[in-house]
């Protein structure tokens, strides 16, 4: 069935308004889009790691989740949802439940790349029928923009401030999607918000409806942490894709597919200049930083091209 934005939007929204995420936040956009990928006859239990998303969507007594929801802690969304999924199988086997359920966990990059990494790895390896979604905003935003292992090279965060001696985060971003692929899970994909949301919507559907464990990595910009005007969200995600900073690809049963190949790969500087977190890279004498990032992006892109041609 071909994708139609109109039909997609006519589906039930499973995230409610009245949540307390900042204006222009990327995370609720990711959540509502992914939940719309559920077929109307299916219910879902959602788990969120402790994060901006969690504290903003279930502040007692106000829940923004229209279906069942569980928050447990920061580092264990994957383990928690795997417990729910296992209970479902146990109760279904005993004939105690007749509804059809899907299981989706959300975590920020801190809760996924860092503190929740072990729990995620365990759940993926065990192969629960679940989807883990990382809404990647590249730092610990809930606690005030501290670096994570997902923070890009040289980014200015509150624990990697662009100082006189150390100019921001000195390490590259961890490639979590590839690590998840290495688990041998049936489906892993990287996506973000582009155009009519075809890419993210189709990937969410595949992730939910491929039996077994699936992983989605969604770039979800944070206007406060990245320091850009909130209305620019879709320009930034587009530039991330056009510069190949955040390539759109999916891996189905080990086979890499590149979902979008820019006609003309834009220089990374186009992306970097849109955000205050990279502003120090544009100071005279810091040209090497931009060059280095360009080299890293090129190398990762070449790797991906090779993998997708295999």
């Amino acid at each position: 069935m071909s994708y139609s934005l109109k039909e997609n939007l006519m589906k039930e929204e499973r995230l409610a308004g009245g949540h307390r995420m900042c204006a222009g936040c990327g995370s609720p956009i990711a959540v509502r889009t992914i939940l719309r990928a559920l077929e109307p006859e299916d219910k879902a239990v959602v788990c969120s790691a402790t994060s901006c998303l969690e504290v903003s969507t279930f502040m007692y007594p106000y829940t923004s989740w229209k279906g069942s929801f569980i928050h447990n802690a920061f580092e264990n969304a994957a383990a928690t949802i795997s417990g729910v999924e296992t209970a479902y199988r146990a109760l279904k086997k005993q004939g105690k439940i007749d509804d059809s359920y899907k299981f989706i966990a959300f975590g920020g990059d801190g809760g996924t790349y860092d503190i929740g990494f072990q729990s995620l790895s365990g759940a993926m390896e065990r192969g629960h029928d679940m989807v883990y979604v990382c809404y990647d905003n590249e730092a610990y935003m809930n606690t005030g923009i501290q670096r994570s292992s997902s923070t890009p090279h040289f980014a200015d965060t509150t624990t990697t401030p662009a100082g006189k001696v150390i100019p921001g985060k000195m390490q590259q971003k961890k490639n979590l999607t590839k690590i998840m692929v290495a688990h041998g899970i049936p489906y892993a994909a990287q996506t973000t918000f582009i155009g009519n949301f075809k890419d993210i919507s189709e990937k969410a559907h595949k992730a939910i409806y491929t039996p077994g464990a699936a992983f989605l990595n969604v770039m979800a910009p944070c206007p406060r942490g990245w320091r850009y005007p909130s209305e620019k969200l879709m320009e930034i995600t587009k530039l991330a894709v056009e510069t190949c900073v955040w390539p759109l690809y999916e891996v189905f049963e080990g086979k890499y597919t590149l979902n979008y190949r820019p006609k003309e790969k834009k220089p990374v500087v186009e992306y970097l200049k849109t955000q205050g977190r990279f502003a120090h890279m544009f100071k005279p004498g810091n040209e090497w930083m931009i060059e280095e990032v360009q080299k890293e992006v090129d190398r990762n892109w070449e790797d991906l091209l090779k993998l997708s041609e295999l």
Partner: peptide
């Protein structure tokens, strides 16, 4: 964590 998820789910 799995026990919490499972028990909350009704198991």
């Amino acid at each position: 964590s799995t026990c919490i998820g499972a028990q909350a789910a009704g198991a």
